[in-house]
Design a protein around this nucleic acid. Sequence first.
DNA 1: CTCCTTATTGACAATTATTATCATCTATTA
DNA 2: TAATAGATGATAATAATTGTCAATAAGGAG
Lengths: 145, 145
Amino acid sequence: MDLGKRLRSRGYRVTPQREVIYRVLQENEGKPLSLDDIHSLACEKRPGLGLTTVYRTLDLFRELEVALPVHLHGDSQYYEINEGKHHHHMVCLSCGDVELLEACLIEEIEDIVRDGSDFMITGHCMSLFGYCPDCLERGRGKGSR
Amino acid sequence: MDLGKRLRSRGYRVTPQREVIYRVLQENEGKPLSLDDIHSLACEKRPGLGLTTVYRTLDLFRELEVALPVHLHGDSQYYEINEGKHHHHMVCLSCGDVELLEACLIEEIEDIVRDGSDFMITGHCMSLFGYCPDCLERGRGKGSR
DNA sequence: CTCCTTATTGACAATTATTATCATCTATTA
DNA sequence: TAATAGATGATAATAATTGTCAATAAGGAG
């Protein structure tokens, strides 16, 4: 479903700012972006777009599940578009590079949860940390961090 | 291994502040604490302990892997002691309650990763989101957020 | 046990991140 | 096309985090 419908069906308006931010997320599928990343990229397409708007729009997108927050090591919040294949991330502790991992064992985990509690699972996130092939080759496998 | 050894073996000093913060983490095993939580609890045991010290100490504990950062929904950083059983978290989207989940399929996931890439996994984190039994009973299962 | 060296602390300032406010603008609907 | 209510951007206000530095105190030497 396209953005316009998703917005209007919940009573929100379609604005150029929202479309630009959406496009930025789309064009970077699989690459988690910080709020500043999103702001910079959006400003390239629409100079003057305010940082406040980026904050507000991502809150909205998160509510509409248009975007998903991504938790990487480090403090800042990253976002990714919620389209295409469900996936997780492998973060290199040395260079910070993020690789995608399409495998997901959530079904198995949900089975386990169901056996042990009455918690109802609706979503999840997982990140793997380690070292990417490049850094391993360059001997930056351990330590650094 | 106790805190003193872990600190001294890396050339760090054992201070009352660090011990207090460590004790706070220990006494709340399984309950992720924000930096403010830690600061408040530590101040009960040692009035005057500075917030700056809490920041610094948790950076240190993270480096020494005495504490682990926990990623929950929302922005702020949470920490937990790195002792006892490895586990994950189930976060209630309605009341914010956090339940522990001792099940972990990291071995299976590592197998999958090994087949598909040369990334070397050294750690991981996973959080499940949903609704706790209490909130489900009270009909706050869906929507709210 | 006491002294010395230097890591650590806490107060404070500086910076950065996030949120609130409000006048203006504009997407939507009639 | 006009009306209206949501959205934006500038700015201010607040909160979170980091840097600075003098004072303190941990750990080792004697």
